[in-house]
Computed example of a mutant assay.
Amino acid sequence: MASGDGVLENEILPLVEFSVGDVKNKAKFNFEMYKSTDPSHGNKRKLVCETPHLNYVGSNFDYDPSREHLDRYLIIRDKTTGKKRIFRTEDFKLYPVVRREDEVDSETERLEAIERVKKDARTFSDKLDNLTVAFGSKNKKRAMESRLRNKISDTSQRIADSVKSHVETEGIRGGDSSETTHLSILPYNKDATSEEHVYPLENYIPPNVQEAVAEASEALLDIDEEKVQAWKDERNPLASRYVLLRARSMHPSVANDEDVKREYLACLQLMAYLMKFYLGNGRTDEKKRYVESISYTWKEWFRETFTPENKSVSLNRRNPPSVKARILAHAVVLAWHIESNQFDVEMLAEGFGVSRVTVSQVVKALGGTVKNSVTAGVQRCYGLLQLPLTFPKESRGKRR
C-alpha cells in the first residue's frame, strides 16, 4: 500500500442494502440481529430493521449472486492521522415485510420468491420486455418486436449467408487481410487460454435450464430395443444415432460418477430437444404431447433465446433461417462440451436433418476447424475446437 497503510481488523461489520427505497439523511432506524442457536447452522444470522413505515428483514445466507464472486471490505479512514482500518463485511439485503389480512406467512412467501429468482434465467431486459408484452401500448409492443427481430437477424442471418458464401468459394483468395472482418455466430471468450473456456456452456444454456431437463434425461438409462422403437415411432430424437451411441457408450469416468453422468445425460437430452425444435416434425397430436412433456423452465429459455416474438413455444417447421442458424450454433457448442471439443459432424448433421456442409459452416463460423480422417477404411468428418481459433473472413469488396 501507499502512505497511510491500512490495518485489517478482526471484527466483521454488517453491510446493509435495502431492496426498495432510499435512506434519507439523518434517518434513524432500529436494527436487531438474531443468530441461530443450532450449532449446525454455523454463522447464519438475520437482521431486522424497523422504520416508521415498513419493517425489513434480511440474512447473511439469502440468495445473492454477488456473494459467489465478490468479497467486500469497508475502509474507515481517520481524517486526522490518515490511518485506515479495514473491516471484512457480511452482506444483508433487507426486504420489506408486508403485513396482510389473510394471515399468509409473508416470510415464507419472500423465501419462495427468492427461490423463483434463483431459477429465473431471464435478464433484466428480458423482464422489461415481459412487462411490455403484458402492459405496454401498441406502439411500445411494435417497437419491442422490431428490436428483437433485428437482434436475431443482424447476427445470425448475416453470418449464415456470409459463411455459406465463404464455404462455397473456399480456396478462392479474397481481398487483402486489411479489407476483411472476422465473423462469429455467438459471442466467445477472447481471453480464453483453454478450449473449455472459449464457449462456457453456462453462458449459452444456464445451469437451471440444464438441471430442468435432468429428470427427462433419465429415460436414457437402461435403453432397450423396445424403448428405441417407441422413440422412433414417436419421432423422438432420443432415437437418433448421435444421442443413442453416446448414451450407450459412456466413458467409465462418466458412467462411474453419478453427478457427472447426470450432467452428461442432461446434455444429451438438451441436444435431443434442439433437434426436435429444429425439425418440428411429427403429427399434430404427437407434437402437442411432446411439447407438454417438456419442463416449463426449458421452454421459456428456448422461447426467449430463439423466438422471443412468440408468447409460447411450438414445434414450428417454418422457423426462419436466422432461428435455425442460432439453434445449430448452440448445438455445436453443446456437442463440443459433450465430446471434449471434438464431434462427428455427419452424425450430428443426421440428427438435425441437414447436410454435413451445413454443420461444417457453423463449426467454422464459431472459430472451429473441420478435419477428415480415415479409420479402418471409413472416412469420418470431425468438428474441432482448438486454440487459436480461425474464423472465416468476409471480403468488403468483390474481386474483379
Rank of each mutant, 00 (worst) to 15 (best):
I159Y: 00
S240N: 07
Y63C: 00
M33L: 15
H330Y: 14
V332F: 01
I12K: 03
E258A: 07
N10W: 09
T181G: 10
L245S: 12
A239H: 11
V370L: 01
P96K: 01
R142E: 14
S322F: 05
M144H: 02
H41D: 15
L128N: 12
N203K: 14
Y95S: 10
R77T: 09
R262M: 12
N30G: 11
P200Y: 08
E107H: 07
G367F: 05
K232M: 15
K83I: 11
K287V: 02
D224T: 04
Y290P: 02
A219P: 14
Y296M: 13
E9D: 08
V254Y: 00
K393Y: 09
F352M: 03
L128W: 07
F31L: 09
E226I: 14
P200H: 05
V254A: 03
G58S: 02
V20C: 07
K119Y: 10
K398S: 11
V363C: 07
I12P: 00
K44Y: 10
A121T: 14
D285E: 14
M275T: 04
V345T: 02
L348I: 03
G351I: 06
N10K: 13
T193P: 02
S314V: 03
R317I: 13
P14S: 00
R45M: 15
E68P: 04
L348V: 04
H53N: 15
S312E: 11
K138E: 10
R396V: 13
M271R: 11
Q269M: 14
S217V: 10
S19W: 07
K261W: 03
L201K: 00
Q379M: 11
A376K: 13
V104Q: 11
V198D: 00
E9G: 06
